Computed example of a mutant assay.
Amino acid sequence: MKRFCVLLLLLAAPAAAEKRLLEAIVVRVNERILTVSDLRQRAVERAAETGKKLTPEDIPTFLQEAVDELCLLERASELKIEVERADVEAAVAQLKEQNHIADDKAFDELLANLGMTRKQLEERLKATITINRTLQKEVGQLPITEEELKSRYEKEKERFAIPEKVHLEHVLFPIKSDGSNAESQWERARRLVAAVRAGADFSQSVAEETKKGDASGGDLGEIALPDLREEVAKAVANLQTGEVSDPFAHPAGVHVIRVKNRIPSSYKPFSQVVEQLRLEEMDRRYRQRLRSVVDNLKTRYVVEVHPEYFSL
């Protein structure tokens, strides 16, 4: 009998320890808590949304975000911010519309695939709406002047660089897989280059060669230098507008290129990127202000984080 009781204790101990671990409080802000099971559920939801599983390296940031959220929810209580049932229902309806789902059954199946119930979704949406409203009050307006955006544009101008382009024409003389026509094709290419350099029209010369049936060519349009094949980039590197390259090897045969025009490198004008800069600057300032708000809240609240309790 004694051996039987000891055996029961040995079998029960791991289960009890696991239960304690699952319900261990990992994050606490005042009386708000997140347990191991809460955070594991969030990790599952995030993986379903992003298509990327949480890694051990992600855990510090993951827990930091959880602390931030609880701090903001606590602040929402202080500000007496309320979210009505109708607000949550509107958010659910918007999600359905975004996912092109008309009926509740299909929506619940989608949630099940995400590892989430309807109740859990509604709780998360309510928290999200609450946090957003809190941030609107705490962060406030973030005005950005045109002068500030122009200054950032000048400092980061290289981001908006447009590389040099070349407008190319070409002709390709194919070489058979056994190489039996290689010598004759190289000779044709050399003759064409000599004729063009002597004054013949490149386009007309190419047209005459393509009529023979095996050559191909024409206008390649404008191509940015970084996008050129390596052998083409080398061939046109020192060519000026109107000049033709020496024949050079191409995987399919013998290639000749003519530079129809060179378009110098430039920058996208401020007017084209001002809205991009505005959004980026707003996001930067918002994150900066958010960090300041949350850090201040942490000094006022009781905050505990126990990463040792949480593992994937």
Results as ranks from 00 to 15, higher is better:
Glu89Gln: 14
Ala86Gln: 14
Arg278Thr: 13
Val303Thr: 09
Leu114Asp: 01
Glu169Asp: 15
Leu79Val: 05
Phe270Trp: 10
Lys53His: 13
Leu172Trp: 07
Val83Arg: 02
Ile144Asn: 00
Arg133Gly: 13
Ala47Glu: 12
Ser216Phe: 15
Asp227Gly: 11
Cys71Ile: 03
Glu230Leu: 10
Phe4Pro: 00
Val92Cys: 05
Asn99Phe: 06
Val67Asp: 13
Phe107Asp: 07
Gly51Gln: 11
Ile263Asp: 03
Ala233Trp: 03
Val244Gln: 02
Arg197Val: 08
Val171Ala: 11
Ser311Thr: 05
Ala233Asn: 06
Ala86Tyr: 09
Leu63Trp: 00
Thr134Asp: 00
Phe62Asp: 01
Leu172Pro: 02
Gln276Cys: 02
Glu123Thr: 10
Ala249Leu: 10
Asp178Pro: 03
Gln276Pro: 01
Gly253Val: 07
Val256Met: 13
Gln98Thr: 05
Glu147His: 03
Val6Leu: 13
Gln272Cys: 12
Ala182Gln: 15
Arg32Glu: 12
Arg32Met: 15
Glu280His: 04
Lys119Phe: 11
Lys150Phe: 14
Gly217Ile: 07
Asp201Thr: 00
Ile33Pro: 08
Glu164Asp: 09
Pro143Ser: 08
Tyr309Thr: 01
Pro14Lys: 06
Ala249Asn: 06
Tyr267Leu: 07
Glu154Val: 00
Ser292Thr: 13
Ala235Leu: 07
Ser311Gly: 04
Leu54Met: 15
Leu297Thr: 02
Asp178Ser: 09
Glu243Leu: 03
Thr35His: 01
Asn296Thr: 07
Asn296His: 04
Lys19Gln: 14
His255Lys: 08
Leu73Phe: 01
Gly217Ala: 14
Arg152Lys: 13
Gly218Ser: 12
Trp186Arg: 12
Val88Arg: 01
Pro56Gln: 05
Gln41Arg: 06
Tyr286Leu: 09
Glu57Pro: 01
Ala224Trp: 03
Asn238His: 10
Gly115Trp: 12
Ala13Asp: 01
Thr210Asp: 00
Leu312Tyr: 00
Phe107Ile: 07
Arg20Gly: 02
Lys119Glu: 12
Val273Met: 04
Val166Pro: 00
Leu110Gly: 03
Val303Asp: 04
Arg291Pro: 00
Glu45Arg: 04
Glu69Leu: 11
Glu230Met: 05
Val254Arg: 06
Lys298Glu: 06
Gly51Tyr: 04
Thr50Val: 03
Ala161Leu: 13
Arg3Leu: 15
Lys53Asn: 14
Ala43Asp: 10
His306Phe: 04
Arg118Asn: 02
His170Pro: 04
Arg133Phe: 14
Arg300Ile: 08
Arg278Met: 15
Ala127Val: 00
Leu8Asp: 00
Ala106Asp: 13
Arg20Ser: 08
Glu308Val: 09
Ala93Val: 10
Asp38Met: 13
Glu23Asn: 11
Ala161Gln: 06
Pro60Gln: 04
